[in-house]
Design a protein around this nucleic acid. Structure first.
Lengths: 340, 340
DNA sequence: TCATAAAATGCCACCGGTGGCACACATGTT
DNA sequence: AACATGTGTGCCACCGGTGGCATTTTATGA
């Protein structure tokens, strides 16, 4: 177990001061070509890489990026982590995860402390925690770099990456109408989420444009869980006439709908079309497989990571306009053209 | 944006040297009760918490725990993260995630560098990466604390947390036999995984004890994916006589079996019982819901976290024997008593 | 009451880097 | 030749803690 080489070793071996080595490490321009080369050679030979802690202590940096979330969707989290990490590791950062409860009273102080304790350089906040403006404000007040992932533009461009759920569900509405459906029911998510409202309006507004209004009894507020989907589906499917389509705010609830339809002997998609949102792991596996919307989560997370790094390193945000990604429709078996 | 208080602030305000404050922070015993109280009060008032980087630099510690894995199962990862974090945060550590490719040639150096760069205090390695003994050896050589999560005891007790898959599948075998089944087929996982072998032997050995041998053509090596499950199921279900039960190495493949059975018009569980392993998110949602095995992943991860902290802090491992957890059977709709 | 041990506290160097500034030297300008 | 300018490099303090040891205070025993 050899000890890790330090900047002093490099300095000694290459016969310069550690300040100059530091310059080479950090790619400063004012180092003589010959000197730089010599130092670099020693660095390579030693396999030296600067200690992040020491570096951080001196420069008030940690090379740590925090991921704050209160999201039960493990798949989503996993994709985000991978997306962020692909950028992080390339830029020399590590990812520190911080799940939390964004309804607890200490939510904000908890997050702030998390950042403070470890001198996290910047955080990426995931929905739904990202919808908490108080958190954003607190981060700002503490001078903490952050980027939010969300479904609506609720912040400056540098601080947000948006998934255009509204547009996606607008597409969904158009698609369903193109199948000949006229009677569409909706299981929305909890209304206090921006994303829910966006998705809901994405459908209803587009339908309205197409000359269809969705009557209030055809819109039910679900809780995004499978169980809630079951409950809402029961309410909708006993209505007469029975709706031709149920669009759920996520795949969890759509799966619940499928379950209830199966129980009630309603054929999907023969008698009822069902659509979800997320493209969950099992969206393609349920029977019938689920028509849904897929968000490019990995790409979105990568984008968020690029933004946070840009913020941290105070670099001009090259593609400042590039902060919106559009989810796309995935058409499977659970939706079908109206036959009769 | 107020600046973060430092140990110097605390020292000044409470009229002692920073060394004494340091003692209070670290719970040293040799501090006068009155002094300690006074200092603690100042700490509380200021909301001071020691800077991990400075602390780490001085004490060669980072208060960072790394999580190394190459596992596609997002749910599993998520549970592990939560389990580890519940302990971490309590003990003042943060969790740094490090997914990797444990078949790449640079796998080991990649992991070592990860630890070195950030002075990670210790790592928890998840299966299947945890099965790589070369990694364990490398970690050891570099003096890096590690704990592996695995399905077999392949390391010292301090360095491993084991899920007793063998026992669980032994239970499964007994359960299936108790239902009256005599003709059991198995879709195993890739044989080069310890866990696969354990699970396979868990069944076959127990069946052997009960006087049943599983003929070779009834054991197929799958690849743990849904698609692979489908493929293997096709092979098994055209055999005559058709097996009464298919036990798959995981729920993914079991779901594949369900799919094929459905396609072939074979009633599950009427004509075929199916069992999986993992208790995936959708194990309870597929139709019929899946009999499977649930590992107490969160608890296991918490245990691993406790072990790694004990290793880091060089504390006597209190419950040194407590390194095995036993998964348990979850019986659902996909298995049923033989009727005819 | 005083020597002596034990407990409480302080001092200073150090961990491994970076920032600010001084300085040496080469070059360009008048 | 004298001076400004720019480039390359080194020195030293400092970031916020901890370790080792010296020193002071308090408790203990004879």
């Amino acid at each position: 177990m050899e000890k890790k080489p330090t900047i002093n070793d490099v300095a000694r071996l290459s016969g310069v001061s550690k300040r100059t080595v530091s310059r080479v490490i950090n790619g400063a321009t004012n180092v003589g070509a010959a000197t730089r080369e010599r130092i670099q050679k020693v660095i390579d030979e030693l396999g030296f890489s600067p200690d992040k802690q020491a570096r951080g202590l001196a420069a008030s940096r940690s090379y740590l990026i925090g991921l704050i979330y209160d999201n039960p969707d493990a798949l989503y989290i996993d994709q985000v982590q991978r997306g962020v990490l692909s950028v992080c590791s390339e830029k020399g950062y590590e990812l520190v995860v911080h799940p939390c409860h964004y309804r607890g009273d200490d939510f904000i102080s908890n997050c702030i402390n998390f950042v403070r304790r470890s001198n996290i350089d910047g955080v990426i906040v995931l929905p739904p925690a990202s919808e908490a403006n108080e958190l954003a404000k607190a981060l700002q007040n503490h001078g903490i770099n952050y980027v939010r992932m969300a479904s609506v533009k609720i912040d400056e461009q540098e601080n947000i990456v948006v998934s255009d759920d509204r547009a996606a569900l607008s597409d969904m509405a158009r698609y369903l109408v193109s199948l000949g459906h006229k009677d569409i029911a909706i299981i929305s998510g909890p209304k206090h989420y921006y994303s829910t409202v966006e998705r809901l309006e994405g459908i209803t507004h587009t339908l309205a444009e197409l000359g269809m209004t969705v009557p209030p009894e055809r819109i039910i507020e679900g809780k995004n869980s499978y169980e809630s989907g079951i409950e809402c589906a029961r309410t909708l499917l006993i209505q007469t006439p029975r709706p031709q389509v149920i669009v759920a705010n996520n795949d969890e609830m759509a799966a619940g709908v499928l379950k209830v339809a199966h129980e009630m002997g309603i054929d999907v998609p023969g008698e009822l079309s069902v659509a979800g949102f997320d493209d969950n792991l099992f969206a393609s596996r349920v029977i019938p497989s689920l028509t849904t919307v897929q968000r490019p989560v990995v790409a979105m997370a990568g984008l968020a990571a690029k933004k946070i790094v840009a913020l941290i390193e105070n670099k001009p945000t090259e593609d400042v306009d590039d902060y919106i990604v559009k989810p796309h429709l995935i058409i499977r078996e659970s939706t079908r053209k109206v036959t009769k």
